[in-house]
Amino acid sequence: MRIRTTGLSKTYDRKNKALEDLSIDLNMNGIFSIIGRNGAGKTTFVRILSTELLPTSGKGYINDADVVEQAESVRREIAVVPQEARPLPWLTPLQTVSSYLMWRGYSYREANEKGKEALRELGLEGKEGEKSRKLSGGQKRKLMVATVISSEAPVVFLDEPTTGLDYLSRKELWQLLSKMKRDRLIILTTHYLEEAEILGDQIMILDKGKLVDIGGIEDLRSKVKLPYVLKVYSENFKISEDEVQVHPVSEKETFVYGSAAKIYGLVPYLVTNKMKFTVEEASLTSIFEQYLGNEEEEKENEEKNW
């Protein structure tokens, strides 16, 4: 599956730039995670590529079909769960999935068979006949995913599908998405960086409508200054901030971010002083902060400048 954009831009009301000159070219199956702060342009990007919204300028392509000029052929290839979409409360889960499939052109019989299959795959068997309003939050999100997954569209857009779910429900959905991604391209926007890291085969970071970077987690990690984190569990640990970043978490816990050489250079000192520690690769959260800066620090700086 291929997604391509060239100079894609969107300006709302002639003044609010939501996307600016975004150019990417991805040829992949699996999960493409899009991360960024609120207002970074994630949803706008999804809505343009899913043919819901017209761009102000630039082009977008799904499998080489133009999302504006060839919207009809794009729509045969895609399925979308928009942000805040939820099942109609007066329908049962089976009615929800099968009616969506009928809107896509399946016959009533096919839609019902496929609907039952999708609900079974997503662990919603036994709930087919209950009204959707009785489902839990996690089950409702699963149902929305089941709806689009059942369509066999090769490109699926999920705009923040796990927002508001508890950790276990999110984990369940992650497992399902990992299973579903084999023959598809799933484009996933999320605020949960852990989710983007676990699921994303490719990750795109957006900020204020602009592309910050794109790549696999290893690529992104290799581009930041501090790709390793040393976690020290001792109240006696003291270190100067020389080419490393020190984040005291509590009196007994300190995180040190730095290059491999700097971090591993500290290990003999820790061993000699019998301090407990672990060395890990920087998480996407740390990478994200390094790319965009810590928001609180940024606010402080803004206030100082003011």
Partner: peptide, 13 residues
């Protein structure tokens, strides 16, 4: 409220 139309717009109808 339900964002259903967005799902329908981006489907082959």
């Amino acid at each position: 409220d339900m964002r259903l139309q967005d799902m329908i717009v981006s489907s082959p109808t």
